[in-house]
Amino acid sequence: MLTTERGRIVLGLFAITVLGIAAVYLFGGKDSNLVTQTVVTGLLLGGVYVLVSLGLTLIFGVLGIVNFAQGAMLAMAMYLVYFMVSSAGINPYLAVVLSAPIMFGFGWLVQSTLMNRLITDVGHSRPLLVTLGLSLLISNTLLMIFGGRPLNVPSPYAGSVQILGAIADVPRIIAFVGAVIVAGGLIVILRKSPVGLAIRAVAANGTGASLVGVNVKRIYAMTFGLGAASVGVAGGLLAPFTSLVPSAGDQFTTLAFVIVVLGGLGSVPGALVGGIFIGLLQTVGSLFLPGSGPLLLVFGMFVLVLFLRPQGLFGANK
């Protein structure tokens, strides 16, 4: 029943998106090439948003807390890739592969040594404060080590290609493909593997899972590790076209929260669909709304969805 409902939501959202884009082409009064460029840019931007949102939604879905250190961890992953590239001459995309297990270990360590001590905090206020403090610690450590001067990671595949007449940067295309692969991998892990079964069991009922022999604290640590590894991939794929400063991740944090709540708290498919939809909405909206108008459109849609469906597009009814 839930799968059927999700299918209807996907089809409905796809239909709304297609009809909206068609209306822009036919009645928007804009050059068709400009609209095509905007749509392609929106899809690629949506891939970036998906990458940033995946770790956040996975951590919330199991632990039930919002990770305020998400942006700082993203910046940490970017600087990790920068360090590998600048000091050892490693290919940036190979550095992404190497940074993912490092970030997984970092996430595991944070959860097992800090967050698990607060596991009985029903109100989740202390875990939130811990993630906020972790964010400040990471940002200031990066500032102390690398300074505040913007840095960059050169891409070995710089350039652009034409897609339906629109120009798309190769690093952004790679990031979009990476977002789809990471989202697909997480879905397969959660649905097909024994670890995924344990994670879903803990997310549904931690007490019940512990009664049947699941090590809940270990699953929590593994989940935070997977979330951090997702952030590691995101940071590595974003680094070639993002200016590296200690606060680089902050610019994505707010929209990542919007996407996670919009798609359904804890839903990986929701983060995938929601990120692409928000990317399209923001760029197509910029054709008609100047300045911060597209963001107002995004937040307006966010409020509307929550009014009509408080659990988010792919969230389960409570």
Rank of each mutant, 00 (worst) to 15 (best):
M1R: 12
E5C: 03
T17L: 12
T17F: 08
V18L: 01
V24A: 15
G28A: 13
G28D: 13
T36I: 14
L44C: 12
V52S: 07
L56R: 01
L56A: 10
V66M: 12
Y82E: 11
L98S: 15
S99G: 09
P101A: 07
F104Y: 04
G107Q: 02
W108P: 01
T113I: 08
T113G: 04
R117Q: 04
I119S: 12
R126P: 00
G133R: 02
T141E: 05
M144T: 02
S155I: 03
Y157V: 11
A158C: 12
S160R: 15
A166L: 02
V182Y: 02
I187W: 12
V188K: 12
S193L: 14
S193E: 10
G196H: 13
G196Q: 11
L197M: 06
R200H: 01
R200E: 01
T207W: 05
A209F: 09
V212R: 13
V212S: 05
V214T: 03
A221C: 06
F224R: 11
A228G: 06
S243W: 04
V245F: 14
P246T: 10
G249E: 10
Q251K: 08
V258T: 09
I259W: 05
I259S: 05
G263V: 03
G264W: 08
V268Q: 05
P269S: 06
I276P: 09
I276A: 06
I278Y: 01
T283V: 13
L287E: 11
L287I: 10
L289P: 00
G293V: 10
F299Y: 13
L306I: 03
P310S: 15
G315R: 07
N317R: 03
